[in-house]
Protein backbone atom coordinates (compact mmCIF):
# COMPACT_ATOMS: atom_id res chain seq x y z
CA UNK A 1 0.00 0.00 0.00
CA UNK A 2 1.12 3.52 -0.63
CA UNK A 3 1.35 6.27 1.90
CA UNK A 4 -1.16 8.52 0.29
CA UNK A 5 -3.50 6.82 -2.09
CA UNK A 6 -5.78 9.46 -3.46
CA UNK A 7 -9.39 8.47 -3.12
CA UNK A 8 -11.77 10.04 -5.55
CA UNK A 9 -14.74 10.10 -3.20
CA UNK A 10 -12.75 12.09 -0.68
CA UNK A 11 -12.23 14.76 -3.29
CA UNK A 12 -15.98 15.02 -3.70
CA UNK A 13 -16.58 15.21 0.06
CA UNK A 14 -13.81 17.76 0.53
CA UNK A 15 -15.01 19.87 -2.38
CA UNK A 16 -18.52 19.96 -0.94
CA UNK A 17 -17.07 20.91 2.45
CA UNK A 18 -14.96 23.60 0.84
CA UNK A 19 -18.02 25.02 -0.90
CA UNK A 20 -19.87 25.07 2.41
CA UNK A 21 -16.98 26.92 4.05
CA UNK A 22 -16.56 29.47 1.29
CA UNK A 23 -20.24 29.96 0.39
CA UNK A 24 -21.02 32.49 3.15
CA UNK A 25 -18.26 34.79 1.87
CA UNK A 26 -19.33 34.50 -1.75
CA UNK A 27 -22.90 35.14 -0.74
CA UNK A 28 -21.80 38.13 1.35
CA UNK A 29 -19.92 39.76 -1.54
CA UNK A 30 -22.66 39.05 -4.08
CA UNK A 31 -25.33 40.15 -1.63
CA UNK A 32 -23.64 43.49 -1.08
CA UNK A 33 -24.50 44.38 -4.70
CA UNK A 34 -28.15 43.44 -4.39
CA UNK A 35 -31.13 45.64 -3.67
CA UNK A 36 -33.11 45.29 -0.46
CA UNK A 37 -36.01 43.74 -2.37
CA UNK A 38 -33.88 41.07 -3.92
CA UNK A 39 -32.31 40.13 -0.59
CA UNK A 40 -35.75 39.44 0.84
CA UNK A 41 -36.76 37.16 -2.02
CA UNK A 42 -37.72 33.59 -1.32
CA UNK A 43 -36.03 31.47 -2.61
CA UNK A 44 -32.81 33.52 -2.34
CA UNK A 45 -30.83 34.38 -5.46
CA UNK A 46 -27.10 33.91 -6.05
CA UNK A 47 -26.25 36.42 -8.75
CA UNK A 48 -27.51 39.95 -8.28
CA UNK A 49 -30.31 40.46 -10.78
CA UNK A 50 -29.87 44.20 -10.90
CA UNK A 51 -26.37 44.80 -9.58
CA UNK A 52 -26.01 48.12 -7.79
CA UNK A 53 -23.27 50.02 -6.01
CA UNK A 54 -25.89 51.79 -3.96
CA UNK A 55 -25.00 50.02 -0.72
CA UNK A 56 -21.39 51.09 -0.94
CA UNK A 57 -22.11 54.70 -1.81
CA UNK A 58 -24.45 54.96 1.14
CA UNK A 59 -21.96 53.23 3.41
CA UNK A 60 -19.19 55.68 2.63
CA UNK A 61 -21.15 58.88 2.11
CA UNK A 62 -23.94 58.68 4.67
CA UNK A 63 -22.60 56.29 7.27
CA UNK A 64 -19.04 57.56 7.59
CA UNK A 65 -17.40 54.22 6.91
CA UNK A 66 -14.35 55.93 5.41
CA UNK A 67 -13.67 57.40 8.86
CA UNK A 68 -13.93 53.97 10.50
CA UNK A 69 -11.73 52.50 7.80
CA UNK A 70 -9.06 55.11 8.54
CA UNK A 71 -9.40 54.50 12.30
CA UNK A 72 -9.04 50.75 11.89
CA UNK A 73 -6.01 51.18 9.64
CA UNK A 74 -4.27 53.68 11.93
CA UNK A 75 -4.81 51.48 14.99
CA UNK A 76 -3.74 48.27 13.28
CA UNK A 77 -0.61 49.81 11.74
CA UNK A 78 0.45 51.47 15.01
CA UNK A 79 -0.16 48.33 17.06
CA UNK A 80 1.74 46.21 14.56
CA UNK A 81 4.70 48.61 14.49
CA UNK A 82 4.79 48.71 18.29
CA UNK A 83 4.75 44.95 18.58
CA UNK A 84 7.52 44.51 16.01
CA UNK A 85 9.76 46.95 17.87
CA UNK A 86 9.01 46.18 21.51
CA UNK A 87 8.41 42.44 21.36
CA UNK A 88 11.67 41.87 19.52
CA UNK A 89 13.53 44.05 22.07
CA UNK A 90 12.06 42.29 25.10
CA UNK A 91 12.39 38.90 23.45
CA UNK A 92 16.03 39.61 22.67
CA UNK A 93 16.74 40.67 26.25
CA UNK A 94 15.07 37.55 27.61
CA UNK A 95 16.87 35.27 25.19
CA UNK A 96 20.38 36.69 25.02
CA UNK A 97 21.20 39.07 27.86
CA UNK A 98 22.10 38.06 31.38
CA UNK A 99 20.49 40.14 34.07
CA UNK A 100 19.12 39.35 37.50
CA UNK A 101 15.48 38.29 37.49
CA UNK A 102 15.48 37.17 33.87
CA UNK A 103 13.83 33.87 34.62
CA UNK A 104 11.23 35.47 36.88
CA UNK A 105 10.44 38.04 34.20
CA UNK A 106 9.99 35.33 31.60
CA UNK A 107 7.65 33.39 33.88
CA UNK A 108 5.68 36.58 34.48
CA UNK A 109 5.26 37.04 30.72
CA UNK A 110 4.14 33.43 30.34
CA UNK A 111 1.71 33.90 33.21
CA UNK A 112 0.02 36.88 31.58
CA UNK A 113 -0.28 34.85 28.39
CA UNK A 114 -2.71 32.56 30.20
CA UNK A 115 -4.97 35.27 31.60
CA UNK A 116 -8.10 35.73 29.53
CA UNK A 117 -8.70 39.24 28.24
CA UNK A 118 -12.04 39.44 30.03
CA UNK A 119 -10.29 39.59 33.40
CA UNK A 120 -8.12 42.59 32.66
CA UNK A 121 -10.47 44.76 30.69
CA UNK A 122 -12.32 46.36 33.61
CA UNK A 123 -9.21 47.60 35.46
CA UNK A 124 -7.54 48.42 32.15
CA UNK A 125 -10.50 50.56 31.27
CA UNK A 126 -10.33 52.35 34.61
CA UNK A 127 -6.61 52.93 34.09
CA UNK A 128 -7.05 54.26 30.57
CA UNK A 129 -9.88 56.51 31.73
CA UNK A 130 -7.83 57.88 34.60
CA UNK A 131 -5.00 58.91 32.32
CA UNK A 132 -7.56 60.58 30.10
CA UNK A 133 -7.22 58.32 27.09
CA UNK A 134 -10.68 56.84 26.91
CA UNK A 135 -12.56 57.71 23.75
CA UNK A 136 -9.35 58.39 21.82
CA UNK A 137 -7.30 56.49 19.27
CA UNK A 138 -4.24 56.33 21.58
CA UNK A 139 -6.52 54.61 24.08
CA UNK A 140 -7.12 51.96 21.44
CA UNK A 141 -3.45 51.64 20.59
CA UNK A 142 -1.34 52.00 23.74
CA UNK A 143 -2.55 48.96 25.72
CA UNK A 144 -1.66 46.68 22.81
CA UNK A 145 1.77 47.99 21.80
CA UNK A 146 3.44 44.97 23.31
CA UNK A 147 1.92 41.53 23.79
CA UNK A 148 3.04 38.57 25.89
CA UNK A 149 2.47 36.30 22.89
CA UNK A 150 4.78 38.42 20.74
CA UNK A 151 7.46 38.49 23.43
CA UNK A 152 7.23 34.72 23.75
CA UNK A 153 7.42 34.22 19.98
CA UNK A 154 10.46 36.47 19.59
CA UNK A 155 12.19 35.04 22.63
CA UNK A 156 11.81 31.49 21.31
CA UNK A 157 13.09 32.46 17.90
CA UNK A 158 16.07 34.47 19.14
CA UNK A 159 17.01 31.68 21.57
CA UNK A 160 17.68 29.55 18.50
CA UNK A 161 20.24 32.00 17.11
CA UNK A 162 23.94 31.47 17.98
CA UNK A 163 25.18 33.30 21.07
CA UNK A 164 28.58 33.65 19.45
CA UNK A 165 27.17 36.53 17.41
CA UNK A 166 26.69 38.50 20.61
CA UNK A 167 30.23 37.82 21.82
CA UNK A 168 31.69 38.61 18.40
CA UNK A 169 29.84 41.91 18.33
CA UNK A 170 31.06 42.84 21.81
CA UNK A 171 34.67 41.95 20.98
CA UNK A 172 34.46 44.21 17.95
CA UNK A 173 33.29 47.01 20.21
CA UNK A 174 29.76 47.42 18.90
CA UNK A 175 27.28 49.06 21.25
CA UNK A 176 24.51 46.88 22.68
CA UNK A 177 21.90 48.66 20.63
CA UNK A 178 23.96 48.13 17.50
CA UNK A 179 24.41 44.43 18.23
CA UNK A 180 20.65 44.10 18.56
CA UNK A 181 19.74 46.29 15.61
CA UNK A 182 22.43 45.33 13.13
CA UNK A 183 23.21 41.72 13.96
CA UNK A 184 20.18 40.06 15.51
CA UNK A 185 17.22 41.95 14.09
CA UNK A 186 18.06 41.20 10.43
CA UNK A 187 18.16 37.50 11.33
CA UNK A 188 14.65 37.62 12.76
CA UNK A 189 12.91 38.12 9.41
CA UNK A 190 10.62 35.06 9.48
CA UNK A 191 9.58 35.57 13.10
CA UNK A 192 8.95 39.28 12.55
CA UNK A 193 6.84 38.51 9.49
CA UNK A 194 4.72 36.02 11.42
CA UNK A 195 4.33 38.39 14.33
CA UNK A 196 3.50 41.31 12.06
CA UNK A 197 0.76 39.49 10.15
CA UNK A 198 -0.79 37.95 13.27
CA UNK A 199 -0.77 41.28 15.10
CA UNK A 200 -2.24 43.21 12.21
CA UNK A 201 -5.10 40.74 11.74
CA UNK A 202 -5.70 40.52 15.48
CA UNK A 203 -5.89 44.28 15.80
CA UNK A 204 -8.07 44.72 12.72
CA UNK A 205 -10.58 42.17 14.05
CA UNK A 206 -10.37 43.26 17.70
CA UNK A 207 -13.81 44.06 19.02
CA UNK A 208 -14.40 44.14 22.77
CA UNK A 209 -11.80 46.76 23.65
CA UNK A 210 -12.66 49.31 20.93
CA UNK A 211 -16.33 48.74 21.73
CA UNK A 212 -15.71 49.78 25.33
CA UNK A 213 -13.23 52.60 24.73
CA UNK A 214 -14.55 54.27 21.59
CA UNK A 215 -17.63 56.00 22.89
CA UNK A 216 -17.89 58.61 20.21
CA UNK A 217 -18.89 57.72 16.72
CA UNK A 218 -15.82 59.36 15.20
CA UNK A 219 -13.53 56.95 17.11
CA UNK A 220 -15.23 53.70 16.03
CA UNK A 221 -13.25 51.01 14.30
CA UNK A 222 -14.86 48.98 11.52
CA UNK A 223 -16.01 45.98 13.60
CA UNK A 224 -17.50 48.27 16.26
CA UNK A 225 -19.34 50.35 13.69
CA UNK A 226 -20.63 47.26 11.91
CA UNK A 227 -21.79 45.60 15.12
CA UNK A 228 -23.59 48.69 16.35
CA UNK A 229 -25.20 49.38 12.98
CA UNK A 230 -26.38 45.79 12.82
CA UNK A 231 -28.30 46.37 16.05
CA UNK A 232 -29.59 49.88 15.56
CA UNK A 233 -32.03 51.44 13.16
CA UNK A 234 -30.18 49.94 10.20
CA UNK A 235 -30.60 46.38 11.44
CA UNK A 236 -32.88 45.50 8.56
CA UNK A 237 -30.85 47.25 5.87
CA UNK A 238 -29.44 43.93 4.72
CA UNK A 239 -27.59 45.16 1.65
CA UNK A 240 -25.93 47.88 3.68
CA UNK A 241 -24.80 45.46 6.37
CA UNK A 242 -23.48 42.95 3.86
CA UNK A 243 -21.50 45.73 2.17
CA UNK A 244 -20.14 46.72 5.60
CA UNK A 245 -19.13 43.13 6.34
CA UNK A 246 -17.42 42.97 2.95
CA UNK A 247 -15.43 46.12 3.74
CA UNK A 248 -14.30 44.57 7.04
CA UNK A 249 -13.40 41.19 5.57
CA UNK A 250 -11.82 41.94 2.20
CA UNK A 251 -8.59 43.70 3.35
CA UNK A 252 -7.92 40.87 5.77
CA UNK A 253 -8.59 38.27 3.10
CA UNK A 254 -6.20 40.03 0.72
CA UNK A 255 -3.42 40.10 3.33
CA UNK A 256 -4.08 36.49 4.22
CA UNK A 257 -3.93 35.29 0.63
CA UNK A 258 -0.77 37.27 -0.04
CA UNK A 259 1.09 35.87 2.97
CA UNK A 260 -0.76 32.60 3.50
CA UNK A 261 2.27 30.29 3.38
CA UNK A 262 4.16 32.14 6.09
CA UNK A 263 0.96 32.58 8.04
CA UNK A 264 -0.04 28.94 8.19
CA UNK A 265 3.51 27.93 9.11
CA UNK A 266 3.34 30.43 11.96
CA UNK A 267 0.13 28.88 13.26
CA UNK A 268 1.53 25.37 13.06
CA UNK A 269 4.61 26.27 15.08
CA UNK A 270 3.08 28.58 17.66
CA UNK A 271 -0.42 27.21 17.76
CA UNK A 272 -1.98 30.56 18.47
CA UNK A 273 -4.23 32.30 16.04
Amino acid sequence: MTRTRSQWWLYIVLTLALLAVIAPFVWMVLGSFKTQGELLQNPPTWWPQAATLDNYTRLFSRLNFSQYFVNSTVVAVAVTAGNLIFCSMVGYALAMLDFPGRRALFLLVMGTLLIPGVVTFVPLFVLVTNVGLSNSLPGLILPFLVSPFGVFLMRQYISGLPRDLLDAGRVDGASELRIFGRIFLPLCGPALATLGILTFLGSWNNFLWPLVVAQEESKYTLPVALALYSKGQNSTQYGLLLAGATVVVIPVLAIFLAFQRRFIEGIATTGIK
Binding site: T4, R5, S6, Q7, L10, Y11, L14, A17, L18, V21, I22, P24, F25, W27, M28, L201, W204, N205, F207, L222, P223, V224, L226, A227, S230, L241, L242, G244, A245, T246, V248, V249, V252, L253, F256, L257, Q260, F263, I264, K273
Partner: peptide
Amino acid sequence: GIRRLRGLFRLGFYTPVITSIVAVAVV
Protein backbone atom coordinates in the same frame (compact mmCIF):
# COMPACT_ATOMS: atom_id res chain seq x y z
CA GLY B 1 -6.73 10.69 1.81
CA ILE B 2 -5.58 12.94 -1.00
CA ARG B 3 -2.38 13.80 -2.75
CA ARG B 4 -3.16 16.81 -4.92
CA LEU B 5 -4.76 20.16 -4.11
CA ARG B 6 -3.93 19.74 -0.43
CA GLY B 7 -2.78 23.35 -0.18
CA LEU B 8 -5.96 24.66 -1.73
CA PHE B 9 -8.23 22.80 0.70
CA ARG B 10 -6.10 23.79 3.65
CA LEU B 11 -6.25 27.42 2.61
CA GLY B 12 -9.99 27.31 2.06
CA PHE B 13 -10.80 25.64 5.36
CA TYR B 14 -8.62 28.10 7.22
CA THR B 15 -10.08 31.25 5.67
CA PRO B 16 -12.99 31.79 8.14
CA VAL B 17 -10.57 31.87 11.08
CA ILE B 18 -8.88 35.08 9.98
CA THR B 19 -12.05 37.03 9.34
CA SER B 20 -13.69 39.31 11.87
CA ILE B 21 -16.25 37.50 14.04
CA VAL B 22 -18.46 40.56 13.85
CA ALA B 23 -18.55 40.52 10.04
CA VAL B 24 -19.07 36.79 9.97
CA ALA B 25 -21.84 37.02 12.56
CA VAL B 26 -23.62 39.69 10.51
CA VAL B 27 -23.50 37.41 7.47
